[in-house]
């Protein structure tokens, strides 16, 4: 399985993602944002970081970069595109998933482990999981998911909410919402469910001695689903 991780100026989770993908069996290539052609890939990942210093709006500049034309084409033809954290912000700015990510409700940069619950298992990212609740890491300043009421209705009708913030028991009350996101949304799919944007970083949870292993479970399952 071939994957491509796009590096934008200011990306800083691109190499972690590279390590994670290679560890679980992907043959990963790092792609520079100024490249035009996307190599043949089974999965394209937009990594976390602070592309273009978060100027204007997080992800707005990166969403207009040269490689994104190819990424958008790839996504529109059904290719799997996953955006993590800043990658999620780039996806919303590119219009590949609905909504936007606003400044966290309490104006804090949040860096901690959170629990998330799977909202939709009928997609390549979360299908076949025995577990419903994962412990992932979040680190962001703009993760407050927002969309219009019409968009929210569409998202819910199409079952596009991939993961919700919750506690270790999977309860999704407002108190387990770290950043003010509508409906505790931590990750969202596009209509065709081949594009996933999420704030949590599974690539930071791939080693027990460093953090945890729920990311390992995520990536192992992902590659098995794609094969």
């Amino acid at each position: 399985m071939k994957s491509s991780v796009i590096t934008f100026p200011g990306s800083n989770c691109d190499r972690d993602m590279d390590v994670a993908l290679n560890k679980f069996g992907f043959k990963n290539k790092m792609i520079w944002h100024n490249d035009i052609e996307l190599p043949k890939s089974d999965l394209v990942v937009l990594p976390g970081g602070f592309s273009y210093g978060d100027y204007l709006r997080c992800g707005s500049m990166a969403s207009k970069s040269k490689i994104m034309q190819s990424v958008i084409k790839f996504a529109n033809s059904g290719g799997l595109v996953m955006g993590i954290c800043n990658g999620f912000q780039i996806l919303v700015e590119a219009g590949l998933v609905p909504g936007v990510l606003l400044r966290n409700k309490y104006l804090e940069f949040i860096c901690k482990n959170v629990f998330v619950k799977i909202g939709n298992k009928e997609n390549p990212y979360f299908k076949n999981h025995e577990k419903n609740i994962f412990e992932f890491h979040i680190a962001h300043n703009e993760g407050n998911y927002f969309c219009t009421n019409e968009q929210l209705k569409e998202i819910e009708d199409n079952n596009q909410i991939a993961i919700y913030y919750c506690n270790e028991k999977g309860q999704t009350e407002e108190q387990f919402n770290p950043n003010g996101s509508i409906k505790n949304i931590a990750g969202i799919l596009n209509k065709k469910r081949n594009v996933l944007g999420m704030m949590p970083h599974p690539e930071r949870m791939i080693d027990q001695s460093l953090s945890g292993t729920d990311g390992s479970i995520f990536f192992k399952n992902l590659i098995n689903n794609i094969k």
Binding site: L56, R57, S60, K64, E93, V100, F146, C147, T148, Q151
Partner: peptide, 8 residues
């Protein structure tokens, strides 16, 4: 196209 995100 760039300066405003019309969703918000």
């Amino acid at each position: 196209k760039l300066l405003a995100n019309l969703v918000i």
